[in-house]
C-alpha cells in the first residue's frame, strides 16, 4: 500500500510530458473506437435487416455470418487479419486514409484492427438490433402494411424507430466493450495507449522521473473508467429523456450484448 501511494512513485505524472504522451495514445484508441463504431452500426443494421428478411436466400447466409463472427474471440480475428490480409489491401488503406489522421492510424496494420473490431462488433450489434426489431408487436407491421406502406417505408417509418429505441442500452454497453477492446490492437504493434504506457514506464520518458508500471497502467485504467462511465451516463440520460417525452418507459431489449450490463439500474 505504501508503494502504491508513495508520492515518489507518482512524480512522473507531473514531470515532463509523460501524461500528455499517455493521453495522445489514448486519443488514438478513441479514434479507432469511433471509426469502428460508425462502421459496426452501419454494417450491423444491414446484417440485422438481412437476418430478418423474408427471403431465405438472404436470411440463412446472414445468420451463419453473424454466428461465426460473434462466436470467435476478437483478438483471434484481429491477429488472423493482421497475418492474413493481402498486402494490396493494406496498401489500398494507406492510400485512402485521410492525411489529417494521426500518424498511428496511417499504417496499413491498422486496417486489420479496424476490420477485426468491425466484423466482430457488427455481428453482435446485428443480433441486438434484430432482437429490438422483433420485440415489437406484430400489429405494428400489420398496421403499417394495411395503411398501404410498402416494406421499406414501414421499416423506416414505423418499425425501426421503435425497435431501435429499445436497443439503445444494449448497444451502448456493447460500445463500451468495443472501446475497451481497442487496446487489443497494441498486440499487432499499433502505437496506442498500451504501447505508450510501456514506453513511459520503461524509459521514465521525459523529465527523467521513474515511472513504475503499476502506476502507469492504473492511470491508463482510470482514463478508460472515466470515458466509459460518461458513455453509460449518456445512455441513461437518453433513456430518461425518452421517458419524459413519451410518458412511458421504453421497454429494453438486453441479453445479446457481450457482457450484459445491469438490467435494473434506471432511476
Amino acid at each position: 500500500m505504501g508503494y502504491l501511494i508513495d508520492p515518489a512513485n507518482w512524480e512522473w505524472l507531473v514531470t515532463g510530458n509523460n501524461l500528455r504522451f499517455l493521453v495522445d495514445g489514448f486519443l488514438v484508441n478513441v479514434e479507432i473506437a469511433l471509426i469502428a463504431i460508425v462502421l459496426s452500426l452501419i454494417l450491423g443494421l444491414l446484417l440485422a435487416l438481412a437476418r430478418i428478411s423474408k427471403s431465405a436466400l438472404l436470411r440463412a447466409p446472414a445468420g451463419a455470418w453473424i454466428d461465426v463472427w460473434r462466436n470467435l474471440p476478437l483478438i483471434f480475428v484481429i491477429l488472423y487479419l493482421s497475418l492474413g490480409l493481402p498486402a494490396p489491401w493494406k496498401d489500398a488503406y494507406e492510400g485512402i486514409v485521410p492525411g489529417f489522421f494521426p500518424e498511428a492510424l496511417q499504417s496499413g496494420r491498422v486496417l486489420a484492427g479496424i476490420l477485426g473490431l468491425t466484423l466482430y462488433n457488427s455481428a453482435v450489434i446485428a443480433e441486438i438490433m434484430r432482437a429490438g426489431i422483433q420485440s415489437l408487436e406484430r400489429g405494428q407491421g400489420e398496421a403499417a402494411a394495411s395503411l398501404g406502406l410498402p416494406y421499406w417505408k414501414s421499416m423506416r417509418l414505423v418499425i425501426l424507430p421503435q425497435g431501435l429505441r429499445r436497443m439503445v442500452p444494449a448497444t451502448v454497453s456493447q460500445l463500451i466493450t468495443l472501446n475497451k477492446d481497442t487496446t487489443l490492437v497494441s498486440i499487432i504493434a499499433i502505437q496506442e495507449v498500451m504501447r505508450h504506457g510501456r514506453i513511459v514506464s520503461s524509459f521514465g520518458f521525459f523529465g527523467g522521473a521513474q515511472a513504475p508500471v503499476l502506476q502507469v497502467f492504473l492511470t491508463i485504467g482510470a482514463m478508460f473508467v472515466i470515458v466509459n462511465l460518461l458513455l453509460s451516463r449518456l445512455s441513461r440520460r437518453l433513456e430518461v429523456r425518452e421517458r419524459k417525452r413519451t410518458g412511458v418507459a421504453v421497454e429494453r431489449v438486453t441479453g445479446l450484448e457481450d457482457q450484459v450490463a445491469a438490467a435494473a439500474d434506471v432511476t
Binding site: I176, D181, L184, F217, N228, L229, Q259
Partner: peptide, 8 residues
C-alpha cells in the same frame, strides 16, 4: 467493468 482486460 470499465477497465480493459489487457490493462488488468
Amino acid at each position: 467493468r470499465n477497465v480493459p482486460l489487457l490493462v488488468l
